[in-house]
Amino acid sequence: MAEEGRQPSMTWLFFSPSGRIGRLPFLLSWLFWFVIGGIFLMQTLKNEEQDTALALWTLALIVSGVLSTVSIAMLAIKRLHDIGYPGPLALCLFIPVLSPIVFVALCLWPGTQGENEYGRHRNGPGR
């Protein structure tokens, strides 16, 4: 987690499994990756007739898919920490039947107030 008194960085938010995040940062980060993937998919489909552009946009789509998968797993771990559960439960996001249920739960379940074993509560009410 970020050092005490310092603001967490975007790298910490997207790619670190340590610490805690609330519902809103989790949802907004997920939406960010959804929009990025949509943009790359749109460009890939738009350039179907141009081989070079198609290859580049397809590569960008694959890279963004890998980055977003890793990032969403890290975000889910931090979100689970905020609720008070261990990070390995984030693997449930990769089980097709459970994935939507776990996602909705992570978006709606409020975090624990104050400090828990994963760190202190950084934001105000409504986490």
Rank of each mutant, 00 (worst) to 15 (best):
H121Y: 12
R120C: 09
W33L: 12
E115P: 01
L106K: 03
A105K: 10
G124P: 06
W109D: 00
A90S: 15
W12N: 02
E117Q: 15
M1R: 06
L91V: 14
M10A: 02
L27K: 08
W12M: 00
Q43I: 04
F14Y: 02
E4F: 08
F34A: 14
L59I: 10
W12P: 00
W109F: 11
L27R: 12
G65Y: 02
G65V: 05
T112V: 15
F26I: 12
Q50F: 08
F40R: 05
S99T: 01
L24W: 15
A60F: 03
V35G: 09
R23C: 13
I72R: 00
L75N: 02
L41A: 14
G37C: 12
G87L: 10
G65K: 01
L13T: 06
S71V: 05
L54M: 14
E115C: 02
I21N: 08
D51T: 13
I21Y: 06
Y85P: 01
T44D: 00
L108P: 02
G111S: 10
S29W: 10
L13R: 04
T52K: 06
A55I: 11
Q113R: 07
G22P: 07
L89G: 10
G19I: 14
W33M: 12
F34S: 12
W109P: 00
T58F: 03
F14T: 01
L31P: 05
V70C: 00
P8R: 08
L75K: 00
M10W: 03
L91I: 15
I101G: 01
N123K: 05
E4T: 11
F14L: 07
T58I: 01
Q7L: 12
P96A: 05
Q7W: 11
A55F: 14
F94K: 07
W109I: 15
G19K: 14
L80N: 13
S71L: 02
T112D: 09
A76I: 05
G114Y: 03
F34H: 09
G38F: 09
F40V: 10
H81A: 08
T44N: 05
A90G: 10
A53W: 05
L13E: 01
D82G: 05
T11E: 07
Q7S: 13
E115D: 12
Y118H: 15
V35P: 08
T112K: 15
A2K: 08
R79Y: 04
A90V: 12
P96Y: 01
I77G: 06
F32A: 14
I21W: 02
P88R: 13
P8D: 03
W57T: 00
L80P: 11
R6L: 13
L41R: 09
I95A: 08
G126T: 03
P86D: 14
V104M: 05
S64A: 12
G87A: 13
H81Y: 07
A53K: 09
L41I: 08
L31E: 06
A53V: 01
T52A: 11
I36K: 00
R23L: 13
W12V: 02
S18T: 09
M10Y: 03
F40W: 10
L27I: 15
